[in-house]
Design a protein around this nucleic acid. Structure first.
Lengths: 148, 148
DNA sequence: TTGACTTCGTTGCAGTTGCAACGATATTGG
DNA sequence: CCAATATCGTTGCAACTGCAACGAAGTCAA
């Protein structure tokens, strides 16, 4: 027995926590719209702007391999939630954006997401804002150093 | 554009954060010992006690499917890090525990893990203990309600 | 302009995953 | 004791994943 304590080891704790949460939340959008996790992530990301977004921009921010993004985008296009087009000024780039259907789906999902989010952190009580801030900080710090 | 803000949505933020961290940390043990992520998780769990642990106990706590645990255990047994045996008093149960080699591996990994853990939360400054506590709380709250 | 080099997204492939089904074992009720 | 039911871990399978290789498109320097 070393003095290594799993309960204090954040990479492990975070992995367990986030995969539990993610799977739990996933029920909401798989039941209703048949989205996979990567598909939901892509949609969620696209919902943040009306500007078209390239595959590259997404996998850089979202920690998905570019092939994952690419395949998610194709499936979503097939089902009519996403529109893919070629960027005219740089034809290597693919522009992704939500279709009307896609936006409607997000409209419907958004309140569920917000509610789940709240219920999820309920246990924290007044520590909740501090926790949110901490997560934000960690992500930011690792953007700064990480991808150089 | 709905008023859904991804930056405030914890399931998403946690997923990104934890997968980045997990992948980053994974380099340490894949480089040195050729462990996959589930294998490391199993080893880490087993390192917490000298008592043998059943497959069931592990996948309940660690958010891995039982087949994942089972396969990780087999590979680790082949490589001599884990010992599998049948529980004599209930022959359905498989007892898992670390071999000597397995313990030696953990001895070597533990300091790296601790150091990484620290460096990881460094950005939080004095907010770090509060963050750790919050994560602990969340996991606990969800054990209480979740698996009934 | 041309040729070397870079960047972008897709695809082939081998390995991994989750789920359901299974055999083996244990428990329960009559 | 036996039959019905439940639990445990493994395995088959189809889907998914990450990586590397690729073609297409752009950039840069000579």
């Amino acid at each position: 027995m070393t003095d290594f304590h799993l309960d204090d080891f954040m990479p492990y704790q975070l992995a367990v926590l986030s995969s539990q949460i993610s799977r739990e939340f996933a029920e909401l959008y798989t039941d209703r719209f048949g989205l996979s996790v990567p598909e939901w992530r892509l949609v969620a990301h696209l919902s943040q702007t009306r500007e078209p977004v390239s595959v590259r921009e997404i996998f850089e921010r979202v920690d998905m391999d570019k092939s994952k993004v690419s395949r998610a985008a194709s499936r979503l296009e097939q089902r009519g939630y996403v529109i893919k087009s070629v960027n005219p000024s740089d034809r290597r780039l693919v522009e992704l954006r939500l279709s009307e259907n896609g936006r409607a789906m997000v409209e419907e999902l958004a309140p569920l997401a917000r509610r789940y989010d709240q219920r999820c952190l309920e246990a924290l009580g007044e520590a909740e804002p501090a926790f949110r801030e901490a997560v934000r900080l960690l992500l930011e710090s690792r953007r700064a150093s990480g991808d150089t």
